[in-house]
Amino acid sequence: MSTCDEYKPLLSGLLDGELTSEEVSKVNEHLIRCSACRGEYEELQKETSQLDSLSIREPQDEALEAFWRLPYGKMVRNSGLFLMIGGYLSFLCYGLVKFFTDDSEMLFGKFSVAAMVIGSVVVFGIVIIERVISYKTDPYKEVER
């Protein structure tokens, strides 16, 4: 080793007590001869000692608990939700089919219910289409709410 640049990383090692005895004597020899590196070592020692006193705040136990939950819980919840919604929808469809195919029901009642169902589907469809159009043209969509 001949230039100061080659010794510089070793100054960190010396500061941390991580050099081998051979490296320590080489760096010390250089520091005796080179006042610039000596000055740099003293500066490093002084400013970086500020870092030693830092400590990060303890996290909340609840936050740590939330890092991982067994996947069974999620799976069971999702399948419960799926069964519940599926059950409601099939029951609704069954009721509607029965209602429209049952001859004993009045024609006026059938028309009224059909109008309500078609109206709801149309309104719901329009809302979805408008949301899609406004999302495509929204200049502020990158801004978090």
Binding site: P9, S12, G13
Partner: peptide, 13 residues
């Protein structure tokens, strides 16, 4: 590790 620490300390300083 040693050289990155050296440059990091200089940058911090």
């Amino acid at each position: 590790v040693m050289s990155r620490l050296y440059h990091a300390r200089r940058a911090f300083q």
